[in-house]
Design a protein around this nucleic acid. Sequence first.
DNA 1: CAGCGGATGTGCT
DNA 2: GCACATCCGCTGG
Length: 210
Amino acid sequence: MGKLIKRTFFDRPVLTVAPELLGCWLCRRLPDGQILRGRIVEVEAYLGRIDAASHSFRGPTNRNRVMFGPAGYSYVYFTYGMHHCVNVVTEPEGTPTAILIRGLDNIDNANGPGRICKVMEMTREQSGIDLTTKDGGLWIEHGTLMEHEIIMVSPRIGISVAVDHLWRFFVKGSPGVTKNPLNKSAVPLMANEDIRKATAAADQIRKKQH
DNA sequence: CAGCGGATGTGCT
DNA sequence: GCACATCCGCTGG
């Protein structure tokens, strides 16, 4: 049994939190009481008001409202008429950033955001849950990567704008990672300057806006 | 690997 | 009223 992650962990820049979520455990208590623990091996960061691919880019709506709230809550949305996807809200209230959880490597059929929600039986009813407590039936526990596990970065999958940013993070070679052509052009996180630059640029934009 | 369709919520971009 | 969606499984080359 792992240790619950505190809100201060999520209340940091989304590009800092995203790679640190790899190796952590997405935990779900099913309606029948069974508890599933999925090891996170693939995520994407969505940067809010400065990111055209983010649901929150154009401001709050009924669907995305939880993204504008405090860090550490779930944001589950429905898309393509049949799939649900789960995000973790990051950064302080009013800064609508989030991390899409895309892959788990210890549960069969959990490579892909739609499949995660199917396996863990999550719908919009699980949106807005406080992930820093077990009370809502959905929470996240600390975890680590093995010595040999390398973090890779690539553009995000399935978006049509802001495609040049390397804001997808995944564990190289893990069976829980989505099969996608972008995998073969991915580069190791440690060799990637884009992340540092992007974080600095986002901070600059936020300072100007305030 | 590219193309396509499914089935419906969402916000008018 | 309507275009499109943070997807996925299937088809054909």
